[in-house]
Design a binder for these strands. Structure first.
Lengths: 326, 326
DNA sequence: TTGTATGCGTTATCAC
DNA sequence: GTGATAACGCATACAA
């Protein structure tokens, strides 16, 4: 900038104004532009940030960037924030509470303009960090009603009910459930949803296996299930588990869906990339990502907004594994 | 900082020194620490960056963050750069040349300390941008020998040869190839590798279909292939195509591997998450990511280093779809 | 319109 | 060891 101004024979202030398109006589504009082009001037993002008090960065923090459901969210978020000139910073937390709260506290350094976080566990430490951070945060996931933080949620409890109702309507009577850890927010919600749905249909709740929200644990859980019972339908707490269960079923010689029907959750591209294609409860991942991004941008623009809650309703996508036509 | 210094009754300089752990009498240290804790002082990352001339950010630019091969790279990169206190900025370029060169030019703004980019097309515009950028860049992929930029590469040409040799040894005689676009670097390399391998075995090269490096195009390409020929083996240019081909084969009533053997490429988790599990040529994605990250950190530390080329050799992982035991 | 001067929040340099 | 002061690169009140 200094060089450009000197070369153009004007002050640094004038050069700055021209380069930002505010003010400047035609002659000044011409000379500054020429000088800038000649020396290949390009503004320094950091200095500009220091002055403007914004970095142009949005952080997205998730447990596992390999899970297709987060990839879908990330894409949706990226599309929204890119429109407003922001770039996306991705944090992989590994689901560690310490790692997530550390991230939230680090926000005070103001290295980003805002953060979208989707924790699978929400502890008191989370809430404390969330309510004291000086930088806007939007949480994707269930947040207690009294926490004054923008929040986009879905109802996986009723999502599980959609799956169960669908299977019951198809005549299935021994419906099993493969869940993730019960010390996670989605884990407890889905467990409660499954139990409530089965009880509503007057069915015994005895076919539950708990593993992790991953492929291999899902497959192992299905193997445990098949070794002790003969379900005619399996609901899975996410698509990774469902793919694992599908393979366990096929290895065990079961026909899907004739012998055992299967429904996953999250409706990721994995469900469509399996064979047979897996029915799945959509929790609107893209939509939640999109909404979260919009909420965040709004709050960055106006910090005085009241805390908002947005809700995305689940829906069932029926495919081959639950009686749809192949 | 100003507040902390005032509260501690020392100068800003002393406060800064104490907070950075350099110098300070025991008494000064105590008072500054106390004051900092009292006002909840936390350093401003931007101001610190302006002074230190580094952002602590590393960018990783890829075509599609949903492709498991890039997810694997990203994880490996993240692990390495995190050790040195860097954070990862992820760019999705969509494979657009304009988008990638724009990204490279934007590096001049110095919003990151360095970039790892894995373009599937490398044009003259790329080379021009790469050689003029003032910020360290490492390219994952084939770069011309005379381009003075750090580069981590593999040899997918010989990777394809591994797959073909394996299938020939297993007695397959009508080997097909499902490739991605021929205007991409991996596309041409894999095409050349397939042709060379088949010719080396004295086999006719007539079973090639070109689609895109995605699931649906892969499946469509396999359907086109099956409608016009009866291959007894299929080599796929990546795992997404392979999964699509597997499904096309199963829909067509083919037994895999009895009727048709299948080998993918990239050895992503997708290959293990399919049923039957897909044999795949590993191109060492994690290893390439790790090496690229190390090269970048070294160059950031010492810009005078000569340009380096690192090579990761491909290897074949045999699974169920190519005659391995189920 | 233009230039001067100041501030953004830190760190580094230099006398003391 | 400490404090005043000058950077870092830019944007902007204010006065001219």
């Amino acid at each position: 900038m200094h060089t450009v101004a000197a070369r153009a024979g004007v002050s640094i202030a004038s050069a700055s104004r021209v380069l930002n398109g505010v003010g400047g006589s035609p002659e000044t504009v011409r000379r500054v532009r020429e000088a800038a082009a000649a020396v290949g001037y390009v503004p320094n993002a950091i200095a500009r940030s220091l002055q403007s008090q914004r970095t142009g960065l949005i952080a997205f923090a998730v447990e596992d960037i390999g899970n297709p459901v987060y990839v879908a969210m990330m894409r949706a978020i990226e599309a929204v924030v890119a429109e407003s000139g922001h770039q996306l910073l991705v944090h992989a937390t590994g689901g560690q509470v310490a790692s997530e709260t550390a991230l939230l506290r680090r926000l005070a350094h103001r290295y980003v303009d805002g953060m979208i976080i989707s924790p699978i566990r929400i502890t008191a430490a989370h809430v404390a960090a969330l309510t004291t951070t000086p930088v806007p945060v939007v949480v994707i996931g269930q947040l207690a009603d009294d926490v004054p933080v923008d929040n986009v949620r879905t109802d996986s409890r009723s999502g599980i009910a959609l799956a169960v109702d669908h299977l019951v309507a198809a005549g299935r009577t021994r419906i099993a459930f493969l869940n993730g850890p019960l010390d996670t927010v989605p884990g407890v919600a889905r467990d409660a949803g499954f139990r409530a749905a089965l009880e509503r249909h007057g069915m015994p709740v005895d076919l539950i296996e708990v593993g992790d929200f991953q492929y291999a644990p899902g497959r192992a859980a299905a193997e445990r299930l098949l070794s002790r019972a003969e379900p005619d339908a399996i609901v899975c707490a996410n698509d990774l588990i469902a793919v694992g269960a599908l393979h366990a079923l096929l290895v065990a010689g079961k026909r899907v869906p004739e012998d055992v029907a299967l429904v996953g959750m999250d409706d990721t591209e994995l469900a469509q990339m399996s064979y047979p294609q897996i029915s799945s409860v959509s929790l609107g991942s893209e939509e939640r990502g999109r909404r979260a991004a919009r909420l965040l941008l709004e709050r960055i623009a106006d910090g005085a907004l009241p805390p908002r809650r947005e809700h995305v309703a689940p829906s069932l996508v029926i495919r081959a594994t639950s009686g749809g036509v192949q």
